[in-house]
Write a protein that binds this DNA or RNA. Structure first.
Length: 704
DNA sequence: GCAAGGTC
């Protein structure tokens, strides 16, 4: 018997269908001498530090560098305790039994690095020794599946792909877990200060943009606007030059030959330039562009959009959503006319669907070389009947984008009129002559230039027109806007584009920061860690996020380029380069970053220390308010009362043991002060311990 | 209590 294992149930079922294996069993399907089973993504993952004896978060464990990594079943948290995921265990048992009875395994996980890892981790975890061959297809049409099965590859051909995947996985573990624990421990182990190859550069991007925006000093500049009249139609022209100084602008303003200054026709038309501009339709959606569009239009978060798309996918209304490709192959293109027909009744774009049936389809999105693990998002041949409003929005974005992508160019006419009236002016206007793909959603093009005319009258070179009005405009330069989810997702995708090195940039372009499937969860992680928060549509760093950013911004772990560097090496490993060289470098880097973070992380203590104001607490002895003294250089704060007792606490002070506290209490007095709030938002109770002329505040975070 | 990567 041959056992086919897919990455997810939907793919296994598609494959089974093509083979006519229709008997449905628990966790697999069978027929015609084949069984088709599936995983749910990563069932097996690298074991947690505890598996290597690293118990708790302790300085002496760091850096954690397991000699050989162990594999473990994916875990879930149940009532605060990690347990093997029961659904995963059940499916693994199915897979184990099938593998045991198999003559041969056919690996049909997604055609990519992670797909290979998903299978190999299961295979090695089960200690399976059966021979396996690899199915490598990037679409699930019958033709592609049949072809793929006729061309199964020896499993060993993908060994180097597995090594690169394993390196990715282990490196993220080594760097992420060590850096996280190092920073958290250094900052006093009061909360999780997570770090990672993807999340930290993402945080850095948000913080850097926030600071740039906040510290931006707007420059004032001046322009002059004049309004000309052509047979009753008024249009606006702007001075060609911008002026930094008001006086210079005023001088030009005074020279304008307007009607009020006694010039009947003071605007000389020097030139009229008319240029057509063709706008190609946008590419089909991948997950990231869908998330961006849904965020821009409807304010959906990346996470919401992913969830809605997943539901539509499970209802078989759209193709696989976690795709990073915006292209399809010729096999899928053959199905497009039918899919277009399906949209003919659609209330928003049914007419355009009907129109598309009468013209030749634009093949811009058809390029099988640009199809990666999965092709671009499309509606399926199933027609939705009723959908909840939010699902409908996502469905429409996908179906509408399909119509746009195969539609015709939008043709615009750009007109530029050059005018002389004391000095040089220019009037710009754009007229859409043929909307083409823009007719699908019929939405205004929001990328119009500043001060542009909606329509311009027909004027000819050599004419002179009256200048009816003039205005002196005071303007300000604007900072780059804060990140919102749409612009952040885009920046995560293309962070490679700002890299000079060509090869690096190429490696970066295919991957970006994170993957389509994980970007939404990276954003959610940053929010969960209190590093960033949503404010209206924007993503803003918190005080905690900024403090962490400030400590790590110059380190490699905060650079988006790190992913590019890794990708380049991983690709080399895939083509046969040494695995151990890379692994050794990663270990070395983990030692370095651990040391560095342990060192600088102490600076974060400040974040977790309550801010006391004078008068907040009265000294139990002299009844006077306390004052805070901070010595930034030493990284210490002290609190002092007016009486002979000096109340103090240093930031870097060792936490007192229970015995020590009991000893203090035995000799002195205690007072408990409740509910201090630190900058990071943690609430503390403090015990004030008085002893031998000194007193200590002992802060304990609440509810941890 | 940690990463990033999949997917339900």
């Amino acid at each position: 018997m041959k056992v086919v294992i897919a990455e997810k149930p939907s793919v296994a079922k598609e494959l089974a269908k093509v083979f006519g294996a229709t008997t449905v069993k628990s966790g697999y399907m069978e027929g015609k001498g084949y069984t088709f089973t599936w995983a749910f993504g990563h069932l097996i993952q690298l074991a947690a530090p505890e598996a290597y004896g690293f118990k708790g978060w302790k300085l002496e464990n760091l850096p954690m560098l397991p000699e050989r990594f162990k594999l473990a079943v994916k875990q879930n948290k149940v009532n605060g305790v990690m347990k093997d995921d029961p659904g995963v265990v059940k499916q693994l048992n199915v897979i184990r039994d099938l593998f045991e009875s198999a003559d041969e395994i056919i690996v049909a996980t997604d055609a990519g690095r992670e797909g290979e890892l998903i299978f190999r981790y299961i295979y090695y975890h089960l200690k399976c020794k059966k021979p396996f061959r690899r199915l490598w297809i990037s679409s699930q049409t019958d033709e592609a599946i049949k072809n793929g099965f006729r061309n199964l590859k020896p499993g060993s051909e993908y060994d180097t792909l597995f090594y690169s995947a394993q390196c990715r996985s282990e490196s993220d573990w080594i760097v992420g877990l060590n850096a996280t624990q190092a920073l958290s421990i250094a900052a006093g182990n009061r909360s999780v200060l997570s770090m990672g190859r993807v999340q930290t550069p993402t945080l850095a991007m948000i913080c850097a943009r926030y600071l740039e925006n906040k510290n931006f000093i707007p420059q004032i500049y001046y322009q002059i606007a004049i309004f000309l009249n052509k047979d009753g139609q008024v249009f606006k022209a702007i001075s060609v030059k911008n002026f930094d100084k008001q006086e210079a602008a005023q001088k030009v303003f005074d020279q304008v030959k307007d009607v009020a200054s006694g010039f009947t026709n003071g605007g000389d038309i020097l030139n009229v330039e008319v240029k057509p501009r063709k706008e190609q339709p946008p590419l089909l959606h991948d997950l990231s562009s869908l998330q961006q569009e849904a965020n821009k239009r409807k304010g959906f978060t990346a996470d919401q959009t992913l969830g809605l798309a997943q539901t539509l996918y499970e209802s078989k209304l759209i193709t696989y959503p976690r795709t990073g490709s915006r292209y399809i192959g010729d096999d899928v293109f053959a199905e497009i006319p039918g899919l277009v027909v399906n949209q003919s009744e659609h209330p928003i774009f049914g007419k355009q669907a009907a129109f598309l049936q009468t013209v030749k389809l634009n093949k811009r999105c058809v390029n099988v070389k640009k199809v990666t693990d999965h092709h671009a998002l499309l509606p399926t041949s199933n027609k939705p009947t009723y959908l909840p409003a939010d699902q409908q929005v996502i469905y429409d974005l996908i179906a509408g984008r399909m119509l746009e992508a195969f539609h015709q160019e939008c043709i615009k006419e750009l007109t530029k009129i050059s005018i002389e009236s004391g000095s040089a002016f220019v009037a710009n206007g754009t007229v859409v002559q043929s909307p083409g793909w823009r007719a699908v959603f019929n939405q205004a093009d929001n990328e119009k230039e500043d001060e542009e005319n909606p329509t311009l009258p027909k004027v000819v070179k050599g004419e002179a027109l009256p200048v009816e009005k003039k205005e002196l405009l005071e303007k300000q330069t604007k900072p780059k806007s804060l990140y919102n989810e749409a612009s952040l997702l885009k920046a995560m995708e293309t962070s490679g584009k700002e890299i000079e090195d060509d090869e690096l940039r190429q490696a970066m372009k295919d991957t970006g920061l994170g993957t389509p499937a994980t970007r939404a969860s990276i954003i959610e992680t940053l929010i969960k860690r209190d590093y960033i928060k949503r404010e209206k549509k924007n993503l803003l760093p918190s005080e905690k996020g900024l403090a962490v950013y400030d400590l790590v911004k110059d380190k490699q772990i905060a650079q988006a380029e790190l992913t590019g560097l890794w990708e380049k090496r991983l690709e080399e490993i895939r083509t046969g380069a040494s695995v151990s060289d890379f692994k050794n470098e990663i270990r070395e880097y983990a030692r370095t970053i651990t040391k560095e973070l342990l060192d600088v992380g102490r600076g974060l203590n400040e974040l977790f220390t309550p801010e006391l104001q004078e008068g907040d607490v009265l000294c139990p002895l002299c009844k006077k308010g306390i004052v805070r003294i901070t010595d930034k250089a030493a990284g210490c704060s002290a609190y002092a009362s007016g009486c002979k007792f000096v109340i103090w606490r240093t930031m870097c002070e060792k936490k007192l043991t229970d015995e020590e506290i009991m000893g203090l209490i035995a000799t002195g007095k205690t007072a408990v002060i409740k509910g201090f709030k630190s900058k990071a938002g943690n609430v503390f109770d403090a015990s004030l311990l008085l002893s031998e002329g000194k007193a200590h505040f002992v802060f304990e975070p609440k509810g941890e």
